[in-house]
Computed example of a mutant assay.
Amino acid sequence: MNSPENAVICSAKGCRADAVWVLAWNNPKLHTPDRRKTWLACDEHREHLSQFLGVRGFLKDVVKLEEWEARED
């Protein structure tokens, strides 16, 4: 588990589980097409958060946290 000072936790309300997934999204009314905001998700909340963003047309990509971090390097 990550240490408290650098813990990467799920974005679901009230969840304190370690994040495993990155949900990249953007609101086309507010952001340029290439801008990506991110939510983090544990395995339990990945589908729920994805559906929330997907229904609104905001969800752009869902990737494992390790893959997302590798892209940044």
Results as ranks from 00 to 15, higher is better:
Met1Arg: 01
Met1Glu: 01
Met1Ser: 02
Asn2Phe: 03
Asn2Asp: 03
Ser3Thr: 08
Ser3Asp: 07
Ser3His: 05
Glu5Met: 08
Glu5Arg: 09
Glu5Trp: 05
Glu5Lys: 08
Asn6Met: 02
Ala7Thr: 03
Ala7His: 02
Val8Asn: 00
Val8Met: 02
Ile9Pro: 01
Ile9Ala: 02
Ile9Ser: 03
Ser11Glu: 02
Ser11Trp: 02
Ser11Gln: 05
Ala12Met: 02
Ala12Leu: 11
Lys13Trp: 02
Gly14Met: 03
Gly14Gln: 06
Cys15Leu: 10
Cys15Ala: 14
Arg16Asn: 12
Ala17Leu: 07
Asp18Arg: 01
Ala19Gln: 01
Val20Lys: 06
Trp21Asn: 01
Trp21Ala: 00
Val22Thr: 10
Val22His: 06
Val22Trp: 01
Leu23His: 01
Leu23Cys: 04
Leu23Gly: 06
Leu23Ala: 07
Leu23Val: 06
Leu23Pro: 04
Ala24Trp: 08
Ala24Ile: 07
Trp25Met: 08
Trp25His: 10
Asn26Tyr: 14
Asn26His: 15
Asn26Ser: 14
Asn26Lys: 15
Asn27Ser: 12
Pro28Ile: 03
Pro28Lys: 03
Pro28Asp: 07
Pro28Gln: 08
Pro28Thr: 00
Lys29Val: 10
Leu30Cys: 13
Leu30Arg: 15
His31Met: 14
His31Ser: 15
His31Tyr: 14
Pro33Gln: 09
Pro33Phe: 05
Asp34Gly: 11
Asp34Cys: 13
Asp34Gln: 14
Asp34Tyr: 11
Arg35Ala: 15
Arg35Pro: 12
Arg35Glu: 15
Arg36Asp: 10
Arg36Ile: 14
Lys37Met: 15
Lys37Asp: 15
Trp39Tyr: 13
Trp39Lys: 12
Trp39Arg: 13
Leu40Tyr: 02
Leu40Ile: 00
Ala41Lys: 01
Ala41Pro: 12
Cys42Trp: 00
Cys42Leu: 09
Asp43Lys: 03
Asp43Ala: 04
Glu44His: 07
Glu44Trp: 04
Glu44Arg: 07
His45Ser: 04
His45Asn: 04
His45Ala: 01
Arg46Gln: 05
Glu47Trp: 04
Glu47Arg: 09
His48Cys: 04
Leu49Asp: 00
Ser50Lys: 03
Ser50Asp: 02
Ser50His: 00
Gln51Ala: 06
Gln51Lys: 07
Phe52Lys: 04
Phe52Thr: 10
Phe52Leu: 08
Leu53Lys: 09
Leu53Arg: 06
Leu53Ile: 13
Gly54Pro: 12
Gly54Thr: 15
Gly54Phe: 05
Val55Asn: 10
Arg56Pro: 11
Gly57Trp: 11
Gly57Arg: 13
Gly57Ile: 11
Phe58Thr: 12
Phe58Cys: 11
Phe58Glu: 11
Leu59Glu: 07
Leu59Met: 10
Leu59Asn: 09
Leu59Tyr: 07
Lys60Glu: 11
Lys60Trp: 06
Asp61His: 05
Asp61Ile: 05
Asp61Arg: 03
Val63Arg: 01
Val63Met: 01
Val63Leu: 00
Lys64Glu: 14
Leu65Thr: 00
Leu65Ser: 10
Leu65Glu: 04
Glu66Tyr: 11
Glu66Leu: 11
Glu67Asn: 09
Glu67Arg: 12
Glu67Val: 10
Trp68Thr: 02
Glu69Val: 08
Glu69Trp: 04
Glu69Ser: 10
Glu69Cys: 09
Ala70Asp: 13
Ala70Asn: 15
Ala70Trp: 12
Arg71Cys: 15
Glu72His: 12
Glu72Asp: 12
Glu72Pro: 11
Glu72Leu: 15
Asp73Gln: 15
Asp73Asn: 14
